[in-house]
Simulated assay, not measured.
Amino acid sequence: MSEVSSAPGRVVAVNVGRPREVTAGRRRVTTGIWKEPVTGRVRASGVNLEGDEQADRKVHGGFDKAVYAYALEDYDWWSAELGATLELGTVGENLTLAGVDVTNAVVGERWAIGSAVFEVCQPRTPCHKLGLRMGDAGFPRRFAAAGRPGAYVRIYSEGDGGADDEVRVVHRPAHGLTVVDVSRARSNDPILLRRLLAAPELADGWLTWAIERALKEFRRNPLDHDLRAALRTRLLELGLESGEVDAALDGPGEG
């Protein structure tokens, strides 16, 4: 992999944590959102950093949510917005990065950190557990509205890293779809849908959503030939036969 021409960023902190029980109203909830900085080298392998776990693997963790990255610059913004300094790891990130535009990272962009390589694949969609961590049930909505989602990354190549390591962008796809673009995709913009379909590195959950939404949009507007072409290309690349794809696209429309 050749390095993309840009100044390297820096790992400010590597944060890990194990699930714990916390009180949420009258309930006890198990969550892994509490993360704390650790010293030394940390191994990245499989779907986790060493010492890190998720409480509910149905919605957290796994291949497409192995590691969560957040920018120090976004922490600075939140500190000004909230009038209080947030400790690193507060929003549940594993990697706190400086000098890396995490929100505008391109889906499929790869970061070399230490001996490991990570691949950007989707934004974070905040759930109620971020509200628990912040002591504010309304904070997840505020976090989403701020347009600073951070990025989930896959472990593309196993290795180890630590605080003060450089972050080097070693690959950046040409399609240009960014993390924040994906976070705005539910706006029903057909042009943005086509861009999601053109990003093969996108997380499976988002790709499935984009295909379903694009099929629905195309059936409402079968004259959108660009959307049809984008859908056809993506479905063929997923392994469907040409006849199956054409049947799916040329079936009866809505209404």
Rank of each mutant, 00 (worst) to 15 (best):
E87G: 15
A210K: 13
D181Q: 03
G25R: 03
E237S: 12
V14N: 02
R28I: 05
Y75R: 00
G159L: 10
A71W: 10
G131D: 06
R142S: 02
R148M: 02
D101N: 05
P140E: 04
T23N: 09
A69Q: 13
V169G: 02
A80H: 14
G83Q: 09
G99T: 10
D101V: 00
A198I: 00
Y68S: 01
L132A: 13
G161W: 11
V167A: 13
V117R: 00
E81M: 08
D76R: 12
D74M: 07
R20C: 04
W34Q: 14
T31Y: 01
E73Q: 12
R184P: 03
G162W: 09
I113V: 13
V106Q: 02
R172H: 00
V170I: 10
Q54M: 15
D181H: 11
I33T: 07
R110F: 02
F143E: 04
Q54I: 15
L177H: 11
N94L: 06
V100K: 12
V47D: 15
L95Q: 00
M134F: 12
L227E: 10
L88Y: 12
L72V: 08
G255C: 09
V4P: 01
I211S: 00
A112H: 02
S157P: 07
D224K: 12
E36Q: 12
A146E: 05
G147H: 10
G161H: 03
E119G: 02
G25M: 06
D250M: 11
R57F: 14
D204H: 09
F118C: 01
T85V: 15
I155H: 07
E237N: 11
D76T: 04
A7W: 09
R220L: 15
G108Q: 01
N15I: 00
A174S: 06
A13T: 02
N94Q: 10
H225I: 13
A80D: 15
R124I: 00
G61D: 07
Y152R: 08
R28W: 09
D246N: 10
H225E: 15
D101Q: 05
G89H: 05
R26W: 14
G25Q: 09
A66Y: 06
Y152A: 07
T23R: 12
V167I: 15
R194F: 02
T39V: 08
V59I: 09
G25N: 10
W78D: 10
A13G: 00
G92V: 07
A144W: 05
R141P: 04
G251N: 11
L192E: 04
R220G: 14
E212G: 03
E81R: 13
G135H: 14
V59N: 04
P200H: 02
G162A: 08
G108C: 03
R110V: 04
A66V: 05
A7C: 00
R234V: 13
G9N: 07
T103P: 12
R148K: 10
A69T: 12
A84H: 14
G51A: 02
D74R: 07
F139A: 03
V102W: 14
K58A: 14
W209K: 06
E241K: 15
P37N: 05
T233M: 13
A24V: 08
V67L: 13
A44K: 08
G131A: 11
I155T: 06
Y68R: 00
E201D: 06
A230Y: 05
P123A: 11
V38C: 07
E212D: 04
P8Y: 03
R28E: 07
H128T: 08
G108H: 03
G83Y: 06
A105W: 03
P140R: 06
G135F: 12
S79F: 12
